[in-house]
Design a protein around this nucleic acid. Structure first.
Lengths: 196, 196
DNA sequence: CGTTTTCTGTAACGAATGGTATATTATTAA
DNA sequence: TTAATAATATACCATTCGTTACAGAAAACG
């Protein structure tokens, strides 16, 4: 009922995702979004409420996609399998030709002022990923998951997530999918105790 | 000759460095800078020419400091020493209480539009650091520097710099100096072939 | 039909942005 | 003392920012 929307809202969301991904939150203006979507200002606000609400919606979906990679990895039974799923998963995700390279969240969370709720939310998500990984590593350590000796699960987890964020930076700087996959492979083989 | 400057320019540069570090280039306005420095608009432009020129000046100095860490590391004679100098050096640098946590360049380069000259310059600097490391690793590999088997110097170099960028992200997200040092230590011990 | 609801177009809002024109003040050199 | 130079203060510029008031247009429902 009522006047039908004259633009494809999913397509508009894709356009917005792409723009935010490439330029970050602050650097993507409503004017950018509107002209890329081909809609007027009132139409934008009617459909998406505000720039921030649109961004929340987009990053919420982004979070789900990323969580799938993590969940898949955490479900593995050995450290090696976990690491492989995680790093290769991110290597492919961060260089998926379907969207810009690098991490959408990282692009928007690093520079925004520290007290901004968006930045806090993103930092919290990163923290959760790290602690979830840490918990799983502790489990694996107790069940003979063959963790490298000499470093705690906490440190190991932080090192692994750091590698992921570093891969995101490299991807945004031009690293190819092959580059990232090689890195992932190298990390797996060096961090994994040789199967004796 | 002429009327003397009524503010300390080095102090002003420190203030600007601090602001850019915390909030990135785009998110730091001239108004922010001016009020923190306590000077008027014409004084700002007279002293620093423009926001971008000021940023260039600051990041140029930043680059030098960072390069010292890299140069010190590349001067080492074994892979282990190199890695230790590099990772521990960045661990301390990225959590130096004298300035905000994380990497100033990364904070400003990730989100700025990809075609912006500043972004390009920063990406180029990252690339140079990676290739410099790669060259040195090749040398070490030929001289018995004990590199981990199974991965090329190029991949190894990219993995190491990724770890550095990841550490920068973690530092900006609240990781402590101790956290980063532990990670550095773990990375060194896992990436280093046990001295047989 | 007419009413209601939903969307769009025109036009504009105040605030903040980076940057300046102009005139004035303070210093050194001649 | 005067001229030249260097820095200041006041006030302002055009542009862009995110957002909205208001009126009209297109559909569903009675």
């Amino acid at each position: 009922m009522g006047r039908p929307r004259e633009f494809d809202i999913d397509q508009a969301l894709n356009i917005a995702t792409n723009l935010f991904w490439r330029k970050g939150f602050d650097n993507t203006s409503i004017s950018d979004l509107r002209s890329a979507m081909g809609i007027s200002a009132p139409s934008f606000y009617f459909a998406f409420e505000s720039k921030e609400a649109l961004f929340q919606r987009i990053t919420e979906n982004y979070r789900k996609v990323q969580n799938e990679i993590v969940a898949d990895a955490l479900g593995q039974k050995t450290f090696k399998d976990l690491l492989e799923k995680l790093l290769l998963g991110f290597a492919e995700f961060l260089t998926d030709p379907a969207h810009p390279s690098g991490c959408l969240v990282l692009n928007s969370s690093i520079p925004v002022r520290a007290d901004h709720p968006i930045t806090k939310r993103f930092a919290e998500q990163r923290r959760k990923m790290r602690t979830d990984l840490e918990k799983r590593l502790k489990q694996l350590a107790q069940n003979g998951g063959k963790l490298p000796a000499g470093s705690s699960p906490a440190t190991l987890a932080q090192m692994v997530v750091s590698l992921v964020w570093g891969m995101a930076v490299e991807a945004q700087s031009g690293a190819t999918r092959t580059d990232l996959k090689k890195m992932a492979g190298a990390a797996v083989s060096t961090l994994t105790v040789p199967t004796s």
